[in-house]
């Protein structure tokens, strides 16, 4: 069963659909033409480039090239996490990279090598989309974990200092904020698993069904990806926060001002 192609004229017809929301927004007085135009253009160009790249990647299917692609995704994710969490890249880049790289590689390898078992473990068709999906979700979790943790620490500076004064070690004093941050990071995944299939059909499953897979197979892959997302988000956020503790504090256990990006 082949997926039906969308030919160029019909792609144009598709873009035409945007005119309807654009008109509605214009009618209620929202002048967003520029933003909408830029967003649609960016989406199209970025996806076209990814399309070209993936096509090449799949055609060559070379282990090093696939690895390079994953490495690039990890670097972009690393920078994006720190920027969105408001932390300085030059202090935390290595810690965050270590956390996401180790957790993504672990869960993707587990899934591909032990569970899916393709002929070639480096098969781009499996590792590139799977690692990409896991990483995308892991990124969200790590942003939440870092952002929550360091803003809670700054907000509760006095309470944190009180814990230190009461004889807590740095780790004992940050533990309440640490737990809250990890909980906030993994909660969306846990909630997502609980409502999966009820509220909406998950993206990967929809994609596979459109691609011609049997619903049962699509279900199994969806379960696999959710479990890997959950595992890698948890591992990455914990490693990431733990490593950052060695960077963000001075020897007297006080949070260093200079590691946080000024808003």
């Amino acid at each position: 069963m082949e997926t039906l192609d969308i030919e160029l004229p019909r792609m144009a017809l598709l873009y035409g659909l945007c005119l309807l929301p654009w008109l509605l927004l214009w009618l209620i007085g929202l002048r967003l033409s520029r933003d909408i135009g830029i967003s649609i253009l960016r989406m199209s160009i970025q996806l076209a480039l990814v399309g070209i790249y993936l096509k090449m990647l799949f055609d060559l299917n070379h282990p090093w090239l696939n690895g390079l692609w994953i490495l690039m995704m990890l670097i972009v994710a690393d920078l994006s996490i720190l920027k969105r969490a408001g932390l300085k890249v030059r202090y935390f880049a290595l810690a965050t990279f270590t956390a996401i790289a180790s957790s993504i590689m672990f869960s993707t390898a587990y899934l591909v090598i032990l569970v899916i078992q393709p002929t070639h473990y480096y098969d781009a068709r499996y590792i590139v989309p799977l690692a990409g999906m896991i990483l995308g979700n892991c990124l969200q979790g790590n942003v939440i974990a870092l952002e929550r943790f360091y803003s809670a620490l700054r907000k509760n500076e006095h309470e944190y200092a009180t814990f230190l004064m009461l004889g807590a070690t740095r780790w004992e004093a940050v533990r309440p904020y640490f737990r809250d941050a990890i909980k906030a990071a993994i909660n969306p995944t846990i909630a997502g698993m609980a409502t999966m299939g009820l509220v909406s059909l998950p993206g990967m499953m929809t994609g596979q069904i459109l691609g011609g897979s049997e619903p049962w197979l699509a279900v199994k892959y969806q379960i696999a990806i959710m479990i890997c997302i959950f595992t890698s988000t948890t591992i990455a956020s914990i490693i990431n926060l733990k490593l950052s503790l060695n960077i963000a504090f001075n020897a007297f256990d006080v949070l260093r001002d200079e590691v946080i990006e000024k808003p």
Binding site: F163, L166, G167, A168, T169, E172
Partner: peptide, 8 residues
């Protein structure tokens, strides 16, 4: 609270 910490 402080008696939860290792030191006490």
């Amino acid at each position: 609270l402080p008696f939860q910490f290792k030191s006490h």
